[in-house]
Amino acid sequence: MLLNAVIIILREVLEAALIISVFLALSQLLNRNLWWMLVALVLGFGGAYVYAVNLGQVSMMAGGTGQEIVNACLHSLIFLCLLLFMISVPHQQHVSWRLLNLVTIILAVITAIVREGSEIILYINGFIGIPDLLSPVLMGGAVGAGIGLSVGVFFYYLLVNMRRSHGIWLGYLILLLIGGSMVAQAVEFMIQADYISATTPIWDSSHWISERSAVGQLLYALVGYEATPAPQQAAAYFISIGVLIAAAVISYTIRGRTP
């Protein structure tokens, strides 16, 4: 039970911690204050609780595929936030762009916490009635959360203590990977709900790096690794990264032209 709890909590915490730490670091590198973090955390956990409580109802919607649709929407929303974030960063001197930038950060963090937090709440909730299992689950949860938060702390300080320009670029790179993985997961949910027809996997790398292994789990959290992705998933992954890069480059170019 314990190892399982570690893995579940770690996976969810790691994904959320990664997004949060990168945004925190970028906020600091872009000279913003950090009060928004508190707002986002509170709203995120509130939203996660509401989603967890209503999950049964949500699942039953849309012919039993409500959950996939909501999850796909949440992942797409995070991608959209990242996109708008990338676009708005070069225009920080305008108040309205600055506001948009802040809103995208807050919204992305809230959405990430809603998505990952609701699973944690459902999971822990299931063991409240089973005292024998509750203590190993809580212990495992503590270990998993500890590892996930520690990685987040390291990422944050790594980005903040790097040379400023390097930190911003690495932060961007991580956001690109997160964006790609968000869209790929959204596509996976649409396949699962049969809104997109599944085809045979484009590759099978489960012999090299199994998704079950620790490395596979870590890669999944960092770059959205899949051992057997559908072609649509892989395409969505790379196209969305391309879109993010293009948006950021265009936005920078426009700022360069209009002083």
Partner: peptide, 21 residues
């Protein structure tokens, strides 16, 4: 505080998980 704590947590817990497994 945070970086030392993160190091201790990470090293301890990973070692612990390894031992557990």
């Amino acid at each position: 505080l945070l970086s030392l704590l993160a190091t201790i947590t990470l090293v301890n817990f990973v070692a612990l998980l390894h031992g557990y497994q």
